[in-house]
Design a binder for these strands. Structure first.
Length: 477
RNA sequence: CGCGGAGUAGAGAAAUGGUAUCUCGGGAGGCUCAUAACCUCCAGAAGUUGGUUCGAUUCCAACCUCCGCAACCA
């Protein structure tokens, strides 16, 4: 019986173009989605855009566009990007869609009905110099450290609050469930956070100050704070709370649910969002997988240092599968990882060009020139592998171990020599190699779908690819 | 003493109370099916100091170093 599986990325905020961190999160979630489908599960894979909030409104104004025009354009750019990295998403969820807005409102009403939303005075300090609200912890001697000569403006307005503090016990109990947060050190981090005590937080803004958001149901003066609205997307894409919630029933209630996020999102996903689900009486997420950040040359990427990794460059030069390969194998599963053009190039040359590409050629060259082939496609029994526990690095190492063993087998058995003296023995070797190559082909499918396609064609036609799977490339291009 | 991580060959990772493994890189040989590819061998590592133990890289303590987090700024 097939199982239902739901997986989602976080929704990137629509104020910029995709960077390498999004690329990693998207590709890894996609690998899991493809892996689950390959095992026969019914999968719903969600991604999308978070399109409300002040920064979007400001950015649009800067460009002389309406917010909607602006986010429409950004959404198209992101969809193109998803195509380039071969994202097999089933749902591209935009928080400005009418379905999303309806569901977000419904979620709000449900939380309100259950007594977890209330109205309260909200006071904050606003630095006109920074054009930002400031917390007491941001201030030095009661003034903004960057603009000590400007008086802080006091904001005093009535806002809606979410009774987050009431979920401390339930959240801590939730964290005892196996694999609720992976890896374990992130689980401990969030436990520590919740254990230290929770504060209620504001979840609305005055519409007159910030109109670009989902209206608060039954109150024309407020819009939802962007976090509340954005998190709702994980269930709005399934039609929770609408007249047709069949998807929600299949892919949330009756499914294993998995959310991917970067470490900067740990709190939002594993505490705030889970609290919101609890407040609305909805099943909590089964697993939240938390990734590290990508550094470049050992330091945080920043525009001023000029070490920002542009994924497009790599996609153009090395191809989509090379990027997917590098992300799966050479960036640490859960720790911060370094991405440099040297290490990328090295990994590409050593493992894709000289490894899998070269191996495919040598096997199929022998097969076609000796006239050896398999009778039909061998039945490869796919089993759960290390991807089951999000061990991308481990699964890749396991696959490349097989590749190494095949290269060694060719050297040891030397079918290219045997063919002159004992053709039958050589044919047997080659058939063994073809079977193994099928196995590798099936196993790389979720990780490198294009390469999978090319290798299948080569195996079916029993001849080496006309153009190399991975061409040699000079460093520095 | 806020809380929490982490320190393993030139680089990145892994495992482990008892010959420390893998990938890349370096050196030497071999092979010719293959994309100057492939195979073999060699050199090269556990932050420091103590403790527990027959034995510690692994457990414990202290120190040193690095890194996260410390809440409405989406």
């Amino acid at each position: 019986m097939s199982k239902n599986f739901y997986i989602t990325t976080t929704l990137p905020y629509a104020n910029g173009t995709p960077h390498v961190g999004h690329t990693m999160e998207f590709i890894r979630a996609d690998i899991i989605a493809r892996y689950k489908r390959q095992l026969g599960d019914k999968v719903l894979f969600n991604t999308g855009m978070d399109e409300h909030g002040q920064k979007i409104a400001e950015k649009a104004e800067e460009l002389g566009k309406s917010p909607q025009e602006y986010v429409d354009q950004i959404a198209n750019e992101w969809k193109d990007f998803c195509k380039r990295i071969n994202m097999s998403y089933d749902s591209f969820s935009r928080t400005t869609s009418s379905q999303h807005k309806k569901v977000a409102a419904k979620l709000w009403e449900k939380c309100l009905e259950n007594g977890y939303i209330y109205k309260k005075d909200y006071q904050s300090k606003y630095c006109v110099g920074c054009e930002l609200e400031k917390q007491d912890s941001d201030l030095q001697d009661g003034v903004c450290p960057d603009h000590p000569n400007r008086a802080l403006e006091l904001i005093d307005e009535e806002n809606y609050f979410f009774a987050f503090s009431r979920f401390q016990k339930e959240l801590l109990a939730l964290y005892e469930k196996e694999n609720h947060v992976v890896p374990e050190f992130r689980l401990n981090e969030i436990k520590g956070f919740v254990d230290a005590g929770l504060h209620d937080f504001s979840i609305s803004r005055l519409k007159e100050k910030m109109p670009w958001g989902v209206p608060v149901p039954g109150d024309d003066e407020h819009v939802m704070y962007v976090w509340f609205d954005a998190l709702a997307n994980y269930i709005s894409c399934l039609g929770w709370g609408t007249h047709d919630d069949t998807l929600f029933k299949s892919y949330w209630d009756d499914a294993t649910t998995v959310q991917f996020c970067g470490k900067d999102n740990l709190r939002q996903q594993s505490a705030i969002w889970q609290g919101m689900l609890l407040a609305a009486g909805i099943k909590t997420t089964d697993t939240i997988f938390v990734e590290g950040h990508i550094t470049s040359g050992g330091v945080k990427m920043s525009k001023s240092i000029g070490n920002v990794v542009d994924p497009s460059l790599y996609l153009d030069t090395y191809g989509t599968d090379a990027v997917r390969y590098y992300i799966a194998r050479h960036l640490h599963n859960v720790q911060d990882a370094d991405w440099t053009k040297e290490s990328f190039h090295e990994a590409y040359m050593a493992n894709l060009v000289n490894g899998i590409g070269n191996l495919t050629n040598r096997i199929l060259q022998m097969a076609s020139s000796y006239g050896v082939s398999l009778e039909g496609e061998p039945h490869i029994h796919l089993e759960q592998n290390l991807l089951e526990s999000y061990d991308f690095n481990g699964e890749m190492n396991a696959i490349f171990k097989i590749i190494g063993e095949m290269d060694q087998f060719i050297t040891d058995e030397a079918p290219f020599k045997k063919v002159k003296t004992d053709p039958d023995a050589a044919a047997e070797d080659v058939r063994y190699l073809l079977e193994k190559l099928w196995e590798v082909t099936m196993r790389i499918a979720p990780i490198m779908p294009e390469t999978y396609g090319k290798m299948r064609v080569a195996l079916e036609e029993n001849k080496k690819p006309e153009t190399p799977l991975f061409p040699r490339i000079e460093l520095g291009a």
